[in-house]
Design a protein around this nucleic acid. Sequence first.
DNA 1: AAGACGGGGGT
DNA 2: ACCCCAGTCTT
Length: 350
Amino acid sequence: MSQFADRLLAWFDRDGRHDLPWQHPRTPYRVWLAEIMLQQTQVQTAIPYYTRFLDALPTLPDLAAADTDRVMALWAGLGYYARARNLHRAAQVCVLEHGGDLPDDFETLATLPGIGRSTAGAILAQAHGQRLAILDGNVKRTLARFHGVEGWPGSSPVEKKLWQLAESHLPDTRLADYTQAIMDFGATLCTRHDPACVLCPMQDDCVARREGRVGQLPEAKPGKPLPERRTLMLWVQDAQGRVLLSRRRGKGVWSGLWSLPETEGADAAREWLARHVAADFDAGEDLPVFEHVFSHYRLHIEPRRWRLSDAGVAEDARVGDNADLRWQPMENLHELGLPAPVKKLLGAPP
DNA sequence: AAGACGGGGGT
DNA sequence: ACCCCAGTCTT
């Protein structure tokens, strides 16, 4: 069934995007960075981050040699920070074990942190022309419609079926263009809302189109209400205009980023302040509560601010890059990766 | 098989 | 106020 690929490639040559930053040149490192950034992030959002990242770290060995805070700062604002940590670790593995390049065989590539089946296929197809399929959100939507596949594409059986279909359409040549084409097609023509079916070169063979079910496919994820959580954010400033930041550890949200210290309630805050900065909880000033929504819960942030009259003190504050706590000058916040709501809070004081 | 993981943009 | 997006990893 190469009709699908032939028509898609013809569409791409005429109507696809050929000016995306990772297309010129289409090197493994550049394609890799693009694929990781484009996981759960739209092209227009990713492009400024992409060009800035590549400008700062032009090659894979540059990335491997960069320190964590630099990488996280370049990623801050994109979200899903495990992508950045995995990218950094994978680059270091490539330098240590693969001569400073990304592996060019699927099995080895897909072993690297952050690179799964789809991303490995995307990299090898685009950078080396290998005949491998991808299955991202755009491809899932396109194939679900074209073949009339029922069910939520995130479920195992549906995903398995879609992988089969994706592989069945692979052309024998032009794999790099085909891979870019099918992603581009889903992003710009076979869109979630108001797809441009009248312009579609495959419309005559599209099951959803023929049966008038374009609006019903693919099926939506079964929904459920978001849980709610609350946290106290402690904004402590010293007389020199520095703010006390804490590096987030573990596997929770914002891992690897610097953020305001958090506690679950006033009692814990009282204790934390006494131990680290000898500040009086009651001397603090409540700032307006605001909300931050994640994909899996809704967070109510209760900020409270202290302005110390002396230079602040804190354990580990002078240890340097590996400390979990540091006094950071307000004017140098851009050096660190801050969670978006924290950046907003510190940058726009009420 | 299901849940965790961020933030921006569209409608 | 929802819904979605160039997925992967962990449990």
